[in-house]
Amino acid sequence: MLSASVKDVAALAGVSVGTVSNVLNRPEKVSPAVMTKVQMAIEKLGFVRNDAARQLRAGMSHSIGLVVLDAANPFFTDLARGAEDSAAAKGFSVLVGNSSDDERREASYLGLFEQQRVLGILLSPVGDILSRLEQLRRRGIPTVLVDRVSDNASFSSVGVDNVAGGEMAVRHLLSLGRRRIVFVGGPSSIRQVADRLTGARKAIKEVFDATLEVIEPDSLTVLSGRAAGEAIRNRPVEERPDAIFAANDLLAVGILQALMLMGTVQVPQEIALIGYDDIEFASAAVVPLSSIRQPSALIGSTALELLLQEVSAEPGFKTSRVVFPPELVVRASTRG
């Protein structure tokens, strides 16, 4: 069934197409009586205006695309909320896509947003897609990288120093006297994971008798964390680590479940555990999780501000690289 058109509304209301257009776009030019007739026709026909076409004709969209790595991760939910709140205050809306760490899904969303002629895109990239972003910019769609500090000065970016965050997490474990540390995080193709591991390795090098084992799951989920935790729990006691650094809090929650709820390993007495992101679940876990905090909502709102600056920029505009410092939050999972 075809949707009703402006012509259908005009015919049913007994007015011209121009009058319907005025009702939709310039209601102050229409009398109350005509307004009522047109609104009744719209309601009866179920007419829905085509904002995408209207924006294309006007040459200006009020929609912004946001592609996140994992919509199931509360970190990205908070990031999106920060972007949405900032956008709404300025009369814009945010369309959210979830790549699920999949380059094909990421490409699909970028293509969709380009077709929709969005004003710009906020992107937490899966891999290296600078050539695609340059193509979008040539077509009039600027992009700001979120939760990712860009090495390329041609694009603005907002994120946290993940190398420093990884270093901070492992230094905290080392300060507790822990020496057999496991890093759980993957896939390593995700830049944030790789940076956190780099920081962990830097910290380990500072202590001569400390070791760092790496377990690389396929995803950054609770289920992947549970599988890693079960594998560690099933080792002989003498082969277990005395501390675990999880690349995000979802992994840490899964590890905690495997060690304590599904086994008998005590956290932190036997194994200290720290995560990353400081999502709400971290403080509410059966053993409240220590974590490295990122200002998720602030990352989203700052990225939105940078994007709007670029949209309205004059020739010679210079991009910005905003790097927030991470923060150590100590809770019971390392405070034994």
Rank of each mutant, 00 (worst) to 15 (best):
S100A: 15
A169E: 06
N234E: 15
H172C: 04
S16H: 09
N73V: 02
D209Y: 08
L250K: 10
R331W: 04
A72T: 14
S156G: 09
E213M: 10
Y276D: 03
I274D: 06
V287L: 08
E327F: 04
E216F: 09
V30L: 06
R138Y: 01
E167V: 03
D8G: 07
G59P: 08
V158D: 00
A88W: 11
G186R: 10
V20K: 04
R180G: 10
G229D: 08
R321F: 00
N152I: 01
H172L: 11
N162P: 01
S100C: 14
S99K: 05
V207K: 11
V17Y: 13
V34Y: 05
L197E: 12
D195P: 00
R335E: 15
I215W: 10
H62M: 11
F47P: 00
K202H: 15
L133D: 01
S154E: 12
P315L: 03
E270Q: 15
L119E: 12
P241I: 00
V287F: 07
L45A: 07
K29R: 15
A243K: 05
I181K: 04
A231L: 10
A210N: 06
S99G: 06
N234K: 13
M260T: 13
F113D: 08
F183N: 05
L220T: 13
G336S: 13
G300R: 01
S63T: 12
G111N: 15
L298M: 13
A58S: 13
A72L: 12
F155A: 00
V193R: 02
P295I: 08
A72Q: 13
L251C: 07
S3T: 13
G229N: 06
L69P: 01
S31Q: 10
S154W: 00
G165P: 04
E270M: 10
L2Q: 15
L250T: 03
I64G: 06
T221K: 02
Q294R: 10
I204R: 07
P32G: 08
L122Q: 03
Y276L: 08
P125N: 02
V323S: 08
I292N: 05
S150Y: 00
D209V: 09
V17Q: 14
G225I: 01
M1G: 15
N248D: 11
G185C: 09
F245P: 10
S290V: 10
S188P: 06
R331A: 07
L110E: 04
L298F: 08
A153I: 01
K29Y: 14
Q115T: 14
V237S: 13
A282D: 06
V17W: 12
S312E: 15
D78H: 10
S5H: 00
A231I: 02
T211Y: 08
G225D: 05
A203G: 07
D128F: 01
D218Q: 13
A89V: 07
K202A: 14
